[in-house]
Design a protein around this nucleic acid. Structure first.
Lengths: 66, 66
DNA sequence: TCTATATGTAAAGTTTTCTTTACTTTTGAT
DNA sequence: ATCAAAAGTAAAGAAAACTTTACATATAGA
């Protein structure tokens, strides 16, 4: 799975720390998500999508390997 | 978080075992998801939404406590 | 009623998510 | 060039996801 987090953060002018605080995770978790180090939970995906005013599918993308 | 899985399965006439097989998890995982025993990963949510032809938001719902 | 299929649940174990702390590197403004 | 903020990364540990096995219950049809 990949994602658009970096772009969405840029659009909304948020740092990793800002986003982390808004959705209630650590900054390192956001960094790891952006770097595709791990797959976030559906609760996090829903929170992020809601914050950015988009659907989960517009931010997180399945890959062949998933 | 809650979800619509049971309804969507009914619409598509799938057993828990069927759904489990289609998205590549154990039947018990599907059962636990339906019973809100745990929060699935975003990959699973995307796969389930795709299978049912709906968005993640139409199947999984944030709650106050999330 | 008997039987098969579907669902619920539990316990133990593995894997992955996510946190905390802490340090390094990059980037941008002055 | 310097300084501060932002991003990258790593390691150890806690918490949660997910598996396997196994058994109990429910449901529906023959």
């Amino acid at each position: 799975m990949t994602n658009n987090l970096k772009v969405e953060r840029a659009i909304h002018n948020l740092t990793q720390a800002d986003l982390a605080e808004k959705i209630g995770v650590s900054r390192q978790s956001i960094n790891a998500m952006e770097k595709n180090k791990y797959v976030p939970s559906t609760v996090l995906a829903l929170k992020i999508a809601k914050l950015f005013g988009k659907s989960v599918e517009e931010i997180f993308f399945l890959e062949e390997t998933d």
